[in-house]
């Protein structure tokens, strides 16, 4: 038998990751039971685990999960299409790009979620407001990374296309766009993260909709264990989106 370096084993990274989380939870459990941490601030991990059943049966967390995931999906689609289109527009127009790029970058750092009263006035207290806030907050990274990706196409690849007499639109779709895809996906994924954070945040703030509202309600009831369990579902949404976006990228690139 040949000895394979341990780092190459397939199961190792996953085991290490999950094991790390388990150890951290155990340590937290221990710290709380030893009363180094107050259980009124941090619930016992075992209590959080126990409360999963409760929030599934009593709080209907699954339909809230679907509500948040649906809003996130709508925002993600908007971010992808509008963000990439605006990025392409900025890339194609020098003046527009120089005029806008820095304030789009500034927008990426702005806490847009605080504008929620404005959105409430425009769209009303409904899912549309939540989707729009997710969309607007996820937009800047998608735009910026699209511009960056499209500008990063190596000149020689475009020259190859021109030597084959490609039209400008063929040059874009057959060479510039595919060569930029990896960078564009970084932007879309970043945008997705921003969207999700803001979606849950706004659900929490206006007490409407999916997981964010549930977290809000549980916090008001001071049911900390259940609240943390609900937050686990938020993380689950983000994991689902990451896996989906990776699958999509692989499919698009091949």
């Amino acid at each position: 038998m040949t000895t394979r370096p341990l780092a190459e084993a397939k199961w190792l990274p996953a085991t290490l990751g999950l094991g790390g989380i388990a150890v951290a939870l155990l340590l937290a459990e221990l710290a709380i039971r030893m009363e180094w941490l107050s259980r009124f601030i941090v619930p016992l991990p075992s209590d959080v685990l126990m409360s999963f059943e409760r929030i599934i049966l009593e709080e209907d967390v699954l339909s809230r999960f679907l509500a948040t995931a649906g809003e996130a999906l709508a925002a993600a689609l908007l971010v992808s299409f509008v963000g990439v289109a605006l990025g392409a527009l900025l890339h194609g127009n020098r003046l527009l790009r120089r005029a806008c790029e820095s304030w789009v970058a500034g927008l990426a750092a702005a806490p847009l979620v605080l504008l929620y009263p404005l959105f409430l006035v425009i769209f009303g207290r409904n899912a549309l407001t939540i989707v729009m806030i997710g969309f607007v907050s996820g937009l800047p990274p998608a735009i910026l990374k699209t511009v960056e990706g499209l500008s990063g196409t190596r000149k020689v690849l475009l020259d190859v296309g021109r030597s084959f007499s490609l039209s400008p639109s063929q040059l874009f779709w057959k060479i510039r766009f595919p060569s930029a895809l990896p960078v564009i996906f970084v932007g879309v994924r970043l945008g997705l993260m921003f969207s999700l954070i803001n979606i849950v945040g706004v659900e929490f703030l206006i007490n409407f909709g999916g997981l964010g509202q549930l977290v809000n309600e549980l916090a008001e009831r001071y049911d900390l264990a259940a609240m943390y369990a609900a937050i686990c579902f938020v993380i689950l949404v983000s994991i689902c989106f990451f896996i989906a976006s990776e699958k999509l990228e692989r499919w698009l690139v091949s």
């Binding site: 020689v156 190859v160 895809l181």
Partner: peptide, 12 residues
Amino acid sequence: GMVFQEESTFPW
């Protein structure tokens, strides 16, 4: 037909 000095295959 042109063959270029730099690396010019399409990586995707």
